[in-house]
Design a protein around this nucleic acid. Structure first.
Lengths: 209, 209
DNA sequence: CACGCAAGAGAGAACGGTCTTTCTACCTGG
DNA sequence: CCAGGTAGAAAGACCGTTCTCTCTTGCGTG
C-alpha cells in the first residue's frame, strides 16, 4: 500500500475510454489554463501542471503531444467560452444597442472579478512575439471574430440613422477601449478603470442613437 | 595572432575608466533593450545578448549583478526617454489642450513606427505577474506619473469651463485609449488603430473645450 | 622617461539548476 | 487482453551564474 496520495483511481465518470475527452485530460486542461492565465505561459513549467492536476508525465504526453499543443488548447478554450457568452448576450438582448451594452457590461464584470489578470489573448501575444507562431494565429482569429461581431451590431444600430460615422470605426473604438481597460485594470485599479470603460461605452452609444 | 574577431580593442572614447558608464555597458544596455522589446524579456537569454552586443560574460556581470538588474535598467531607460519626450512636448505646446494633442500625436507616431511592438511596460507587466516584483514597481511608477501628468493638463483645460466632468476621468479615458491602441496596433494593423486613437483623442478634446 | 600595476575587457570552461521530452515498469477495470 | 492510468528515472538542451586566464590601456611613481 505504498500508493498513498492517489485521487480516486477509477474516477467518477466511468466512460473514460475514448481518446477524445477523459477525466485526466480535463483536469490537465483546466489546471493548466488557470496556471497559464495567472502566472504566465512561459513561467509555468510542465512539472507545476503535473503536480497540481495531479497527473503523471506519461498521461500528459499521451493526451497532448507537446506543451505548445496544451497552450493552444488553453487559448482555444478561452476563445470558445467568450464566443458562447457573447452570442448568448446578443440573443438575449432586445436590440443591437442593448446587445452592445450587454457586451460592455460583460467586459466590466470581468474587470471586477477578484482573479482577473488581464486579457488572456493579449498576454499570450506578449509572450509569443513571433507573428508566425500558431499561438498568434489563435489570438488573431479571436480578435477578428470580435471586431466582426461588433461591426455587425454597430451596423444594425447605424441602420436607423446612417449619418454618424462608420460601423467599423465604432467597433474599433470599442475594441480599443476594451483592450485598454483589460490591460490597465489590474495595474491602475479595477474600480476606476471599470468606471472609465463604462463611461466610454455609454458615450459611444449615446453619441449615435 | 589568434585573436581574430575583436571589435576595436581600445574603443573610440578613451576615458572608460570610471565604473559608472562605459562603452561596453552602453552597448550591453542598448542591445539588450532592443532584444527585450522585440522578442520578450524571458525569451531572450544572456547568451543572445552577449553575442549581439558583443560583450563577454565577465564584462556583463561586472556591470550588472544579474539579468534582473539589466531588465530594470532597460525599463528605467524607456521610462526616462518617455518622460523627457513628454515634458518637451508640454513645454513646446502653446496651451494645455495643445500639449494633450501633442502627447496623443506622439502615441500615434509610435504606433506607426515599423519596429513598433506594443507598450514596453504593458509587455513587461505581462511577463512579470508577481505584484511584488521590482519590475512591476517600475511599471506602476511610470503609469502613475503618466496619469498624474495627464490629470494636471486636463485640470488646466477644465479650468476654463469646469462643468464637463472631472480631470481624473478624462485622464483615465485617455490612458485607457492609449493602452488599447498600444496593445492592438501590431495585431489589428497600425493604420486603422492609429486612426481610431486619433479620433478618440480629438473627440475627448472637442467634447470639453 | 621608463616601469609596473590596477582595471576594463576578451575568451572560454564549467557548475548547478530547470525545462521539455522520452522511456521503462507496474497496476487496474471492462 | 489492453487501453489508460500511476510512478519514476533519465536524456538532452538551455539558462543564469561563477571562475580562471590573457591582453590591453592609462596613469602614477621612482
Amino acid at each position: 500500500m505504498a500508493t498513498a496520495t492517489r485521487p480516486a483511481p477509477g474516477g467518477p465518470s466511468g466512460s473514460s475510454r475514448g481518446h477524445g475527452r477523459s477525466e485526466a485530460r480535463e483536469r490537465l486542461l483546466s489546471t493548466a489554463s488557470a496556471l497559464f492565465y495567472r502566472e504566465g505561459i512561459r513561467a509555468v513549467g510542465v512539472e507545476r501542471i503535473l503536480a497540481e492536476a495531479p497527473v503523471t508525465r506519461a498521461t500528459f504526453y499521451r493526451h497532448f503531444p507537446s506543451k505548445d499543443e496544451l497552450v493552444l488548447a488553453y487559448l482555444r478554450g478561452v476563445d470558445a467560452h467568450i464566443r458562447a457568452g457573447t452570442q448568448a448576450a446578443i440573443d438575449a438582448a432586445p436590440s443591437p444597442a442593448d446587445a452592445l451594452r450587454a457586451i460592455g457590461t460583460a467586459v466590466a464584470d470581468d474587470l471586477a472579478r477578484p482573479d482577473f489578470r488581464g486579457c488572456a489573448f493579449l498576454k499570450a501575444a506578449a509572450e509569443y512575439p513571433d507573428p508566425d507562431d500558431p499561438v498568434r494565429q489563435v489570438v488573431l482569429d479571436h480578435r477578428a471574430w470580435y471586431v466582426a461581431t461588433l461591426t455587425g451590431l454597430f451596423a444594425q444600430v447605424f441602420g436607423d440613422s446612417p449619418r454618424r460615422g462608420k460601423p467599423e470605426h465604432a467597433a474599433l473604438h470599442f475594441v480599443m477601449m476594451r483592450d485598454g481597460a483589460m490591460s490597465g485594470a489590474h495595474l491602475d485599479g479595477a474600480d476606476a478603470v471599470g468606471a472609465a470603460f463604462h463611461r466610454g461605452v455609454e458615450g459611444l452609444l449615446t453619441l449615435l442613437h
